[in-house]
Design a protein around this nucleic acid. Sequence first.
DNA 1: GTCTATAGCGCGATAGAC
DNA 2: GTCTATCGCGCTATAGAC
Lengths: 194, 194
Amino acid sequence: MTSMQRDTRTAILDAAQELIQTHGANGMSYQSISRVVKIRKASIHYHFPSKDKLIEEVIRRYSREFLGLVDGILVSSDSAPGKLRRYIGLFETTLRNGAGRRVCLCGMLGAELASLGNPAVSLLRRFYRDNAKRLARILEDGRKTRTLSFDGDPETMGELIFSFLEGAMPVARADGGVKGFGRMTGQLLRNLGL
Amino acid sequence: MTSMQRDTRTAILDAAQELIQTHGANGMSYQSISRVVKIRKASIHYHFPSKDKLIEEVIRRYSREFLGLVDGILVSSDSAPGKLRRYIGLFETTLRNGAGRRVCLCGMLGAELASLGNPAVSLLRRFYRDNAKRLARILEDGRKTRTLSFDGDPETMGELIFSFLEGAMPVARADGGVKGFGRMTGQLLRNLGL
DNA sequence: GTCTATAGCGCGATAGAC
DNA sequence: GTCTATCGCGCTATAGAC
């Protein structure tokens, strides 16, 4: 292991992630990665033996980082509405930083579910559940403190809001952009009593 | 034009649509179509000169048929909540008929936006707007008749609900299935005062 | 209208030199 | 760790026979 390995490995993961978020798993190839990272496509196999393994690593890293940010929001001293706003902000940031061309990694891969291996599908399912569960905690907290209002159980409401956010990203990318996304999330918050 | 042309053309469109809804545009190939329709892959080019044109035709037909069903709901004598339930039912039927593996054609293609030609992207954008607009009409009607309750303008609410439905299909396909989809849409209706 | 044959490219993956 | 070279496959698309 030379001093460059970690950096090359990270650079490959970065390139793969961005390519998946913009073009999908089928639009991400060893060739396209080699154009971004200054390395020959055959060399990528040294770091990631197969494309399936590479995709799994990208999902794992993305899930870890994203849920880490979410947990940071959960343990903060913000009000429930504040936490919800910050949670939605994570999705908006993805759209904004990608110049309106990047969507959630796991939302994109959800569309390509049939092309993925079983390990990747399991990782996606876990990402969905973990997000819905954390949203449910915020919602339950908000209802208790009477700062958020909605009907039905918080778990299902968490699933609903998560699905909406995953759907709103590709829709906004095609029409409305970051502005359209913000309009929709604003409407959501308004209907939660904010 | 022999007597078979229309049927072959339709069979190709049917196969292409189903393949896109399950595997995406990148997972739909002339080869995979030829496996379903009993025809050689080169022969497909007689009916659709390029893959881009084929995709455009599939979107056009899907939009026409889907919006036709929606318009049928709009002109019916159902109450606004009844219309909304039937509209949501169109999405649930897609998921159910595809054995939980098929999502909305235009939701799938929205994820693959970067791989599509400009005409296809414009058709998608129109589909999104047309759906949101029709939802807005149902919502406005429901608010006037006090059968649906929500805050903010109906247009934005229409965009929100449409994005939710497009997001809920791939999420439910990965986790929860038709049952999970129904749970989320039930929660939505509950929060609109039903 | 449908066929066979093929061009031309990009893909994932491997072998082996350095 | 990265390279060159190559294999075998699937892809879109075209030419030309029938």
